[in-house]
Design a binder for these strands. Sequence first.
RNA 1: GGUCGAGUGGUGGAAUCGGUAGACACAACGGACUUAAAAUCCGUCGCCUGUAAAAAGGUGUGGGGGUUCAAGUCCCCCCUCGACCA
Length: 851
Amino acid sequence: MENHPYAPAEIEPYWQAEWQEKSAFKIPNDIETLKTKPKFYVLGMFPYTSGAGLHVGHAKNYVPSDVFANFRRMQGYHVMHPMGWDAFGLPTERTAVRENEHPAHITERNTETFQQQMQRIGFSYDWSRKIDTSVPEYYRWTQWIFLRLYEKGLAYLADVPVNWCPALGTVLSNEEVKDGKYVETGDPVERRLMRQWMLKITAYADRLLEDLDVLDWPEGLKEMQRNWIGKSEGADITFKIKESDKTFTVFTTRPDTLFGATYCVLAPEHPLVSEIAHPDAASAVNAYVKEAINKSDLQRTDLATEKTGVFTGAYAINPCNNAPIPIWVADYVLMTYGTGAIMAVPGHDERDHEFASAFGIPIVEVISGGEKPIEEAPFEGDGVCVNSDFLNGLRVADAKERMIAWLESEERGTRQVQYRLRDWLFSRQRYWGEPFPLAHLEDGTIVQLPDEELPVELPLIDAYKPTEDGKPPLARADANWLKVTLPDGQTATRETNIMPQWAGSCWYYLRFLDAHNTEVPFDPELERYWMPVDSYMGGAEHAVLHLLYARFWHKVLYDCGLVSTKEPFQGLLNQGTILAQSYQDAKGKYYYPHEAEEKDGEFVAKASGVSLQTQIEKMSKSRFNVINSDDVIDNYGADSLRLYLLFIGPFTASTPWQDAGVEGVYRFLQRVWRLVIDEDSGELSEKLTDAAGTTESELWRELHKTIKQVTEDTESIDKMNTAISQMMIFVNTATQAKSLPKEILKIFLHLLSPYAPHIAQELWHRLGETGFIALSQWPTHDEAVLTSATVTIIAQVNGKLRNRLELPADATEKEIEEAALADERVQRFIEGKPIRKVIVVSKRNLINIVV
RNA sequence: GGUCGAGUGGUGGAAUCGGUAGACACAACGGACUUAAAAUCCGUCGCCUGUAAAAAGGUGUGGGGGUUCAAGUCCCCCCUCGACCA
């Protein structure tokens, strides 16, 4: 006899094709049609399209955003839910070099894979809005926006220290360098000053900081952005150099401790270092500077490492008491923060204290209140000024104000706000990125190309590496590309740097709104309708850089009158990472799970027998523990994959993948299937009836309970795991019911549809409905159905549960108390003891008797 | 070192405003069905005492202390892990 079990491999491709063919999730682009409904913009951070394809870690982000988009759509919103590809960047360029193929071809192949994998999961994206940051139709507008920044004076050239690898002849990012070596080849890397494009993000520091307050983001994430921007208020103070007319300026957040400054430190890169060094000290200073310059900032400022430094032989004059204090050079001071020079107050700063102790520099207490003597430990807390002349007796906050006022009146310093945020290094000496829409005249003048000339397309070149004389790869392009004739007839040479990988992702959420516009980057009316993004979901690894860069560009566009909101992403959630078991031998080499086996409770490599360590860690290609979404779909179907990723835990929690867990949700879907379909005949189950839903009153109540909870849990996004639990409870109840009104099942299928769209659609269809359940209306629960005639009262004695009492729902507190005191089991515990207090919590259906 | 977050059965995780700890699953175990197995259905499942089995009781949310009629939840100290920053 033929069987008719739940067969996702048959129903899923069918409905995916139907959705595609009927454009089920296509959003109109006509503003009048759009205005008939409220809008909702759900955006999952688009993926970098590496060759590895989509794994379940990506899906952990995209599945909840898809469920939420489905949910809002059923609630009657126009839902913007697009997808696209972040395609420019180094990984693809590296693959291109390795495989000797143009990066555009590789990108095409990779994006094709990603799209197929996503379509197999049944996401409700409007694929007609798909974008790819590496195609000219898109990056034309990235260049266009860059020109708006350039016009506003926000892009400039500067000599900045970069990681230069002589062996490769190229600049590397900080992430590619570890311990002064290129992480992949071990070639040495040095710090070198190079002329680079910078974006003046620091001009927006204050607004980037202040506007965080209006965003619905997790507090921790806002705090990370605040720390990154790192605003600190204090003063710039000018120090004269003894027996010289030279001066230097320091920035300090603690002007109140100026009387305690017993030495100064210049960063090794500080221009004064070579000028002021005493002849006797010059050679030691030079040697020190040379060594320090190649260390990373992290190495230099790490509190754990021992402080190093060298005395210059010169003295500065403390501006508040004219005391001469020695000037040192030390690498714990960075040229890139503040002024590259500090006043050191060892009594009240930990690093200064450590340094002064090591080199025998005096330590003076100027703020009282420390627990230990000032020679033993610095005191960084709040206290009262001492040994500080006109500041004596003031508390720290007042002393700061007083000192700044005094410095300003004496013209020895000014109030100053300092940011940790640096300007954004915006150029790369690479190939696979957006060319700058700029050119250089013979005399060195830089000119912007007219908007009509865009896009500046990437030229074809023969090798993706810098030229022998150190110019970027684009300098290899032929003269047709390199030379450009300007509207005024002059000839210029194109800029050969490219933009960094971040550029394309800084505004992609705007292009989705009007993805095919050839006149403007996006239509202003559409922008006003859709923006801001209501719910942006993605990994915490983008908590700082991507989100800060995109917010910066958005604010510039706002200032240009091109967008209507100050912030791009009103709501934001970070998904937890997905973890998986990985296997490593003693040397740290990773093994695939299929290469490992368990022997006597230990793991060993199948081939060699060497013993392996196992751990649960982040799923990634380099750890050989990636689970591909296609494999899961092959075995269980897309609906099981979706459900499992949600059921595994809250959206924001990091949880380990367990193959066995997929079985559980797969079984659940099979039970759902059997509620509707008789597996033996393939016909509708005989339990199904056309009776009203209320005829199965217990099930009817469970249904309404389920509507309520699924609605609330889906709304929160973070609790979709408990929404699924409740659906399981409903299905368990329905399985045991003697008869099943179709009405009840149809309502339930609505709840299931955002989560498991294929099976919900198939069963909806089998129950005789036409059209897409995904486009039907979300049900609401009836509170009256949930109330019942009796309630269960929890009876406690001294806070411990002793019995449950079934009482009428309208029982008064007095009646509850009487019933509880009369209860036999409660009696056993109060027997013979005086009752001291009785507390009835009617809201919680609870009574506590204290004896 | 600093900031923020977390720690609950064998496992993933539930638990609203302080009010029944362990929902829902996985794994395990037992039973029904089957020639057998798979699948399915039913049941047990924190630990300890207790019992033939129950009943019943004690204890229990990283550790210690506190507030409260009542603490996984609030406060203080400590330990461990994670993220970010230095």
